[in-house]
Simulated assay, not measured.
Amino acid sequence: MRITYRVLAYTICVLVALQAAFHAWGSAGLGLYLSEGGVIDASAQDGPPPFPEVIGLMLHGMNGMFVIPVVALILLIVSFFAKVPRGVTYAAIVFGLVLLQVTLGLLGHSIVLLGFFHGINALLLFTAALLAGLNASKRRVAERAEAATAPASASA
C-alpha cells in the first residue's frame, strides 16, 4: 500500500504539471488567435472551437475538475491503510489544497484576482504532493521505524 500511496502522490505532481502545460498551450493559442484579428465573445461558445489550442483550456478544466480531485480522494483513502508515517496528514493537506484549487478556479471566472491565488495554490499543491511521495519512500519509512524502535530497545 505504501507504493500505491507514493504512486498516487507523484501522479498528482504529474497532473498538476500537465495543468500548467494545458493552460499555457491554450493561452498561447488564444494570444495568437487574438493577434491575428480573432474575436472572443459569447458567440464563440457556439459552433466549432475558434482556435485549435482551445483544447488545452478544455483539458485544463476537465483534469482540474475531475481527474485530480478523484486521485486526491483515492490518495486520502489509501493513506489510512498505507502505514506511512504522517501519511494521512500529508494526504489530507493535498486533498484540502485540491478542494481550494477547484474553488479558486471556479470563482476565478467571476472574481479574477482569485486566478492569481489559483496559480500560487497550484505550486503549493505540487509541493505538498511531492513531499507526500517523498515521505513514503522506503528510506524515510525505514529511518522513522528505526528511530521509533531505538529508544524502546535501548531502555530495555
Score class of each variant (00 low, 15 high):
residue 91 A to L: 06
residue 128 A to V: 07
residue 83 K to D: 11
residue 124 L to T: 00
residue 52 P to F: 13
residue 74 I to G: 02
residue 132 A to K: 04
residue 11 T to C: 12
residue 74 I to M: 07
residue 123 L to V: 11
residue 124 L to F: 15
residue 97 L to S: 01
residue 132 A to Y: 07
residue 15 L to S: 09
residue 107 L to S: 10
residue 2 R to N: 13
residue 62 M to N: 04
residue 129 A to F: 04
residue 59 L to P: 02
residue 74 I to W: 10
residue 103 T to A: 15
residue 63 N to W: 06
residue 78 V to R: 05
residue 101 Q to K: 10
residue 78 V to N: 03
residue 76 L to Y: 02
residue 58 M to C: 01
residue 55 I to D: 01
residue 154 A to F: 08
residue 13 C to R: 03
residue 133 G to F: 09
residue 8 L to K: 11
residue 23 H to K: 14
residue 11 T to N: 03
residue 15 L to Y: 08
residue 85 P to Y: 03
residue 11 T to M: 13
residue 4 T to Y: 08
residue 106 L to C: 04
residue 82 A to C: 01
residue 59 L to Y: 08
residue 66 F to S: 04
residue 99 L to K: 01
residue 89 T to S: 10
residue 90 Y to P: 01
residue 25 W to H: 15
residue 108 G to M: 08
residue 31 G to Y: 05
residue 32 L to S: 14
residue 104 L to Y: 07
residue 45 Q to L: 15
residue 22 F to Q: 05
residue 111 I to A: 11
residue 98 V to E: 08
residue 151 P to C: 02
residue 143 E to P: 04
residue 77 I to G: 00
residue 156 A to L: 14
residue 1 M to W: 07
residue 51 F to V: 11
residue 113 L to H: 00
residue 59 L to T: 04
residue 58 M to G: 11
residue 8 L to V: 11
residue 11 T to H: 02
residue 36 E to P: 00
residue 130 L to S: 03
residue 59 L to F: 13
residue 3 I to H: 09
residue 12 I to E: 04
residue 66 F to M: 13
residue 82 A to Q: 02
residue 63 N to Y: 08
residue 57 L to N: 13
residue 103 T to V: 15
residue 108 G to E: 02
residue 112 V to M: 08
residue 29 G to A: 08
residue 152 A to N: 00
residue 29 G to C: 08
residue 121 N to H: 04
residue 154 A to P: 06
residue 120 I to R: 00
residue 144 R to P: 00
residue 64 G to D: 06
residue 141 V to N: 05
residue 79 S to K: 02
residue 43 S to F: 07
residue 122 A to N: 09
residue 143 E to I: 12
residue 80 F to G: 10
residue 88 V to C: 04
residue 154 A to G: 01
residue 26 G to L: 10
residue 68 I to L: 05
residue 50 P to M: 14
residue 28 A to V: 05
residue 26 G to M: 09
residue 69 P to W: 06
residue 140 R to E: 15
residue 40 I to Y: 13
residue 138 K to E: 12
residue 2 R to P: 03
residue 73 L to W: 02
residue 126 F to K: 00
residue 112 V to N: 05
residue 20 A to M: 12
residue 101 Q to P: 03
residue 51 F to H: 05
residue 67 V to T: 15
residue 150 A to F: 05
residue 71 V to Q: 09
residue 2 R to W: 03
residue 68 I to C: 02
residue 32 L to T: 14
residue 15 L to H: 07
residue 65 M to R: 11
residue 43 S to G: 03
residue 96 G to V: 03
residue 83 K to S: 14
residue 52 P to L: 14
residue 94 V to R: 00
residue 154 A to V: 11
residue 79 S to I: 06
residue 74 I to D: 04
residue 117 F to P: 02
residue 106 L to R: 07
residue 81 F to R: 12
residue 64 G to N: 09
residue 152 A to R: 00
residue 139 R to P: 00
residue 52 P to H: 09
residue 119 G to Q: 06
residue 16 V to G: 05
residue 39 V to M: 13
residue 41 D to I: 13
residue 1 M to D: 06
residue 146 E to N: 13
residue 24 A to N: 12
residue 44 A to C: 10
residue 26 G to T: 06
residue 31 G to F: 09
residue 123 L to C: 04
residue 147 A to V: 02
residue 149 T to S: 14
residue 77 I to F: 07
residue 122 A to D: 04
residue 134 L to H: 10
residue 7 V to I: 15
residue 19 Q to H: 10
